[in-house]
Design a binder for these strands. Sequence first.
DNA 1: ACACTAGTTGCAAAGATTCTCAACTGGAAA
DNA 2: TTTCCAGTTGAGAATCTTTGCAACTAGTGT
Lengths: 156, 156
Amino acid sequence: MQLVSIWRIIAAMKHALNHKPDYEKELRKAGVRITRPRRIILDILTSTEDHPDAMKIFHRAIEIDNSISLSTVYRTMNLLEELGAIHRHAFNGGPSRFEQAHGEHHDHLIDIDTGAVIEFKSDKIEKLQLEIAKSLGYDIVHHRLELYGRKLDRPS
Amino acid sequence: MQLVSIWRIIAAMKHALNHKPDYEKELRKAGVRITRPRRIILDILTSTEDHPDAMKIFHRAIEIDNSISLSTVYRTMNLLEELGAIHRHAFNGGPSRFEQAHGEHHDHLIDIDTGAVIEFKSDKIEKLQLEIAKSLGYDIVHHRLELYGRKLDRPS
DNA sequence: ACACTAGTTGCAAAGATTCTCAACTGGAAA
DNA sequence: TTTCCAGTTGAGAATCTTTGCAACTAGTGT
């Protein structure tokens, strides 16, 4: 056994002890049952850096538990989206892609040529949104702001 | 021939002379070819009050020209959405429903209890969006801002 | 009016997403 | 721990949406 693996194990334990229960507790509080498929899907979403679509999530999931079905992936994504735990990006007719909602909310700028998703955040805009909603007699539960753009300096 | 039909014809002419060419010219300016299927679909969208889905639009279209295909309806909806000429509402897993965009661009506040859609517009936000995109090196082609909220004064 | 070509169309097939339903299970209550 | 049942799941059918391709056509230029 090599030393490096010890640190790996410690990191995994930290992860298991701190991170996972965090959002599972959150979800239970919201009345969501933590089932085996859901736990696996949540882990995938938590540990990924990219914005996978349902099929990609499904493939990663069946490597952990090959009994999970694609329907369940879709159902779980819809559930988590409604709860605000993930965001859905529908790009250019292609399949929806998902991303875990970080503690901090952020908005998206989508490159319509490449599909790249850039995250950004603007307190000014958030504040304006609150003002507008209030003036319409509403309280904002969540929002979605997507800018679709094209690189300024790209070679024609 | 009855008198009433004369007024019908005049109304139709007014419509043909004023309304239709309006947005057709707009679209042509944007480099969109006005084909027979597109003209029919545009007419349907213009003259409807509800938010039909693709299948409903298709059925109305084939009553006018039964050679139109469902694919073309979908393609046209995607095209018009990209141009900002219509808005797509994906409600609760069901099929997408469409609505003609008024001349002015507007954003949406969606009541998460009733599903009601309220339109609004804020130059300040639009301006901020442009600034943000520019600072990220992008030019905005279009955007989508949706606030999901709940009435402030609703009885608990 | 005619020819030309890039953009569109219809169709059928593929791909993405939701639905139906009988079997299963998380977690509350005893 | 065991029971119990509302909520969840897997499988596949159904529905919704996009795509590939050969035929067609709007709009430009002659």
